[in-house]
């Protein structure tokens, strides 16, 4: 065993720097993000992106039109359904939909995941909630993870949080075995019929105050397996959600950002479906 002690010591520090809460670049060079809807107007009666989207994240709406032009057709995008598969940006003929590196897109209100060309209002309730969480749990958080029917992609990235590179423990965030010791229920997967009861039992076993995070498109909206004979629609209508983390699968830095967002230790980068910057 002493072999391993020296081996570990010789390996030195492997943990990434975490500079003031901005994890957006940490270890994620080259990682594709979610599409952005640019100000470029759509081609007339074009709906190729809507047809290409495998999860119905896109729909056509009346848009405000470009500068000096009349209102025309535009697209609305639901980041809660988007699986970042990049098909829409590949087929868009006008650059209305653009590829991006935006992936740290966790939000507190479901409405913040919805881009509509018409401007959206801020959700005041979510901001109140955030300050309540910040007061109570700012320095430590215990998480109970429940896989309610995932492809294992989300679990793979969640497990990565415990590796030395991300080293989640340094932030005072821990996974716990018992829901009775948990502050946050972190749900992945589409919520299949047989998993509904165990999920609910875990949530009910948690003491108040408690919070819920929906991780990945499946838990937010059902993802690729939504509304089949076996797949569910995520947490919609099942239990209340406090933080939504879109993606498929969200990378570990995006998960850390979402957890710190819940704790009021990082900023939300998506408002009314509009990414910062």
């Amino acid at each position: 065993m002493s072999l391993w002690t020296f081996f570990g010591l010789a390996r030195g520090r492997a943990t990434s720097d975490w500079d003031g809460g901005d994890l957006r670049e940490a270890g994620q060079a080259g990682v594709q993000g979610m599409p952005r809807v640019s100000a470029q107007p759509c081609a007339e009666s074009c709906a190729v992106c809507v047809a290409a989207c495998p999860t119905d994240a896109l729909r056509l709406v009346e848009g405000p039109g470009g500068v000096g032009t009349a209102p025309g057709q535009s697209v609305a995008l639901d980041y809660g359904r988007c699986i970042a598969c990049q098909r829409c940006v590949e087929v868009c003929p006008t650059d209305t939909l653009k590829a991006s590196y935006d992936w740290a897109l966790a939000v507190r209100a479901r409405s913040d995941l919805q881009f509509d060309p018409a401007p959206a209002a801020l959700d005041a309730l979510a901001l109140d909630l955030q300050s309540a969480i910040a007061r109570r749990f700012r320095h430590s958080l215990h998480i109970r993870h429940v896989d309610a029917g995932s492809c294992n992609g989300c679990e793979s990235e969640l497990q990565a949080l415990m590796n030395p590179f991300y080293n989640l423990h340094r932030l005072g965030i821990f996974f716990t075995a018992s829901p009775r010791a948990a502050d946050l229920l972190l749900v992945t997967g589409t919520v299949t019929e047989p998993m509904r009861e165990p999920l609910r039992a875990a949530w009910e076993a948690m003491p108040e105050p408690k919070w819920v995070m929906a991780m990945g498109a499946c838990a937010i909206s059902g993802g690729v397996a939504r509304e089949g004979y076996a797949g569910g629609s995520g947490l919609q209508g099942l239990i209340p959600v406090d933080v939504y983390l879109p993606g498929c699968a969200p990378n570990p830095a995006a998960i850390m950002h979402a957890l710190l967002l819940l704790l009021g230790r990082s900023e939300q980068h998506l408002h009314g479906g509009r990414p910062d910057g």
Binding site: A14, G30, V31, A84, C85, A160, N163, P164
Partner: peptide, 28 residues
């Protein structure tokens, strides 16, 4: 320590995957 090392190397391999194709789990 063996667990930590395995997980660290897995992380480096996933980061390489992202550098090759833009996605850590080799999707898309």
């Amino acid at each position: 320590v063996g667990q930590a090392e395995g997980r660290l190397l897995e992380e480096q391999a996933k980061q390489l995957a992202a550098r090759a194709c833009g996605q850590r789990l080799l999707m898309n």
